[in-house]
Design a protein around this nucleic acid. Structure first.
Length: 695
DNA sequence: CTTGCCTTCGTTTTT
DNA sequence: CGAAGGCAAG
């Protein structure tokens, strides 16, 4: 007899999703397949964490619940909430609950890494495989390209990032190379055969060197599910599989789920097709749109009562989505009343945009809304530049999510390369990078040293006994090899073993980088401090790669937890979050939608959804800014660096009717440059640009 | 073979 | 404007 007090703060729909179970089984031990279509702000997280808690309270073993999320933040949040619900319920029953945890909550990639580590022997994988982040994977592709002689100048070959992107699409879409090239990379079609060879070689190298890229974590997991014996064993470990953000899963992930729950029994997926914004990463909206066809007897529950935003904001969001092509029809209804109309601000240029937004943020703060409750959102990281400059100038603290990451800094990568090489001496990418830190060691010496290492059964210790390369700084060389060997040994325990490596690297900084290097040394110390938070070296590497610190400065969040700061974030990074006030920058055609994705109708739909995600982050205040004249980042040679653009095509008259409009900034006085690109000439007339606003 | 300087090229979103 | 690739000097 289950006490139901914990279900009281749910609405009827939510409760039906939380308690959904097969009627003929006791205590909800299993259920038919369940799809929860949860509109923005309708309590998706609440519902999923309640379901997990409810299952545990009904007697399901928490270790037999698999909870797959999109980001680590989401996994932690849900685990935390589920624990809170369980604790409260157990306390109410007068039972002293031991804290409930969900040991199998995590991202697809993180859970995949964990399972592959465990099943490595059965899969012919080295259990100490390293995970390549994006940049490392691209570097390995580059090495392969050299090895195959594809880097010839006779014919332009796609660059490494493009090669990796193509590869990734092929893997995640489970598609033929030719098809991917034709639809998404038409300018590379001529290189079909060479790419095929390249990918074959890349795959072979990864296998040989015990390296897995992001896609491999899913691919190998999916391959494992194709092996009936292994699949059955894995499926038997879990009674319930709960999936968050199902609209952002791809075909590989769908295949994995199919293997874990072949009939759909125990499978519960939650998502919102209107918020599918990861198509560029091969996510497939058809997963969620076709769920009921995929799993016979699936139950669909729709959540439409919105607890986040005011109705005025939801009206704008609903109107925006009314034009969408394919979708689960839903109208969000606010539980919070009418509220203020959102505002559409027409700014003269980027500077006015920045100034206006900051003034509004400060004004809002005067009414008692903390900076942390306010967010400036944008499509591309660089759109925030002018706002950032202004924030620094006015000494307003902020934190930026998306864009340049802490781990992208060259010196941080250096230290990681040392640790990665130590963890897996066959990690060619880490080895190359580490070796080339030594003055006088370039690609060729690094290559030869690596070959010697391979020929000598990957023994770092014996590599140290061999003479240094001719031109190498002998002292630094010895320092490097000793340092890495000690790291491999793990002497002194984690993270103390990291200290000598950090010190050695800091000693190299003046040679390697321009002065001043104090900031770089500080970053290295920060990384050492971060390392201390992880149990051991391997967990540090794995988790850091799968979940890099989200924001610049995020790595010292413990210290600044109570500080107030304004949030700057890409729309993508803001998914799943909410703020009292949202200011959306640069709502211009070419950005919303992006000029790069405006080609196919499907891409265009995704751009609309991106705007929808941005709108629906706001609780009380939404301001959308369109600068008329802005800095153009491409075609710099073609003359003037400012162009006049058009307001986003998604801001249709019907959508604009949901907003109140206002102009800010000085009237246009700058003469129009005759050198502006011809394609933009039609928009050069400010009067015409202004008229277009009200068409 | 390494390194530093010069040219050219291409630009989104991220687990 | 920044990164990456090519070329020449040490």
């Amino acid at each position: 007899m289950t006490d139901t007090a914990h279900l009281e703060d749910l609405n009827e729909r939510q409760r039906s999703a939380v308690t959904f179970a097969r009627p003929d089984t006791a205590a909800g031990l299993t259920s038919d397949p369940l799809l929860v279509i949860a509109g923005a702000g309708t309590g998706k997280t609440q519902t999923l964490s309640h379901r997990a808690a409810h299952l545990v309270l009904s007697g399901v073993d928490a270790r037999r619940i698999l909870l797959l999320t999109f980001s680590r933040r989401a996994a932690e949040e849900m685990t935390r909430r589920a624990r809170g619900i369980c604790d409260a319920a157990l306390a109410a029953r007068g039972r002293r609950g031991q804290a409930v945890s969900l040991p199998w909550a995590g991202t697809f990639h993180a859970i995949g890494a964990r399972l592959l580590r465990e099943y490595a022997p059965a899969l012919g994988l080295s259990p100490n495989f390293s995970i390549l982040d994006r940049a490392d994977a691209a570097d390995l592709i580059d090495v392969c390209r050299q090895q195959l002689g594809l880097a010839l100048r006779t014919r332009r070959f796609p660059r490494k990032d493009t090669c990796l992107a193509i590869y990734s699409q092929v893997v995640n879409r489970r598609a033929k190379l030719a098809a991917v090239l034709e639809t998404r990379f038409p300018w590379c079609v001529a290189h079909h055969d060479a790419l095929k060879r390249l990918f074959a070689h890349y795959t072979e190298r990864k296998q040989h060197l015990a390296l897995l890229d992001y896609d491999d974590l899913l691919l190998h997991w999916a391959l494992m599910m194709r092996e009936p014996g292994l699949a059955a064993g894995l499926a038997a470990r879990f009674d319930h599989v709960l999936v968050d953000e199902y609209q952002d899963t791809n075909l590989l992930q769908a295949e994995i789920l199919r293997g874990l729950a072949p009939t759909g029994a125990g499978l519960c997926v939650v998502g919102d097709d209107a918020q599918a914004i990861y198509g560029f990463r091969a996510a497939d909206v058809d997963n969620i749109l076709g769920f009921a066809d995929q799993y016979a007897g699936a139950r669909v529950v729709r959540l439409e009562r919105n607890y986040r935003s005011t109705q005025a904001i939801l009206d704008a969001a609903n109107t925006l989505m009314a034009d969408a092509a394919r979708r689960y029809d839903k109208q969000l209804a606010s539980a919070r009343g009418a509220g203020l109309r959102p505002r559409h601000i027409i700014a003269h240029d980027g500077a006015d945009e920045a100034r206006h937004v900051i003034e509004q943020v400060l004004a809002r703060r005067e009414t008692g809304v903390a900076l942390k409750q306010q967010a400036v959102l944008f499509r591309n990281a660089h759109h925030a530049n002018e706002v950032e400059i202004e924030l620094v100038r006015r000494d307003i603290p902020y934190r930026k999510y998306g864009g340049l990451k802490f781990l992208d800094a060259a010196h941080v990568k250096d230290l990681l390369a040392l640790v990665r090489w130590a963890a897996n001496p066959a990690n060619q990418i880490a080895a190359y990078r580490a070796l080339q830190i030594v003055p006088g060691v370039g690609p060729a010496s690094a290559q030869r040293a690596f070959e010697r290492l391979e020929a000598d059964d990957w023994s770092l210790v014996r590599l140290g006994r061999q003479p240094a390369p001719r031109q190498a700084d002998a002292e630094a060389w010895c320092g490097l090899v000793d340092t890495v060997a000690a790291l491999a040994e793990g002497a002194g325990g984690w993270p103390a073993t990291l200290e000598p490596a950090a010190e050695w690297l800091k000693a190299q900084l003046p040679d390697r980088y321009e002065a001043p290097t104090t900031a770089r040394a500080g970053d290295i110390d920060d990384l050492v401090r971060i390392a201390a938070r992880y149990r051991d070296r391997d967990r540090f590497l794995t988790e850091l790669t799968l979940d890099p610190p989200a924001a610049t400065g995020d790595h010292n969040d413990d210290a600044h937890l109570d500080e107030d700061y304004l949030v700057l974030s890409t729309v993508h990074s803001a998914k799943g979050r909410e703020f009292d006030s949202v200011y959306l920058l640069h709502v211009a055609d070419g950005t919303f939608p992006s000029e790069y994705t405006a080609r196919s109708p499907a891409d265009l739909e995704e751009e609309r959804r991106l705007l929808y995600v941005a709108f629906t982050r706001a609780r009380n205040v939404l301001e959308v800014v369109s600068p008329l004249r802005y800095h153009v980042t491409e075609q710099r040679r073609l003359g003037d660096r400012h162009v006049y653009g058009a307001i986003s095509r998604f801001m249709t008259p019907a959508v604009r009717a949901c907003f109140s409009a206002r102009d800010v900034g000085t009237p246009v006085d700058a003469p129009v440059s005759a050198a502006a690109p011809a394609s933009l000439r039609a928009a050069l007339d400010v009067g015409a640009a202004a008229r277009r606003l009200w068409d």
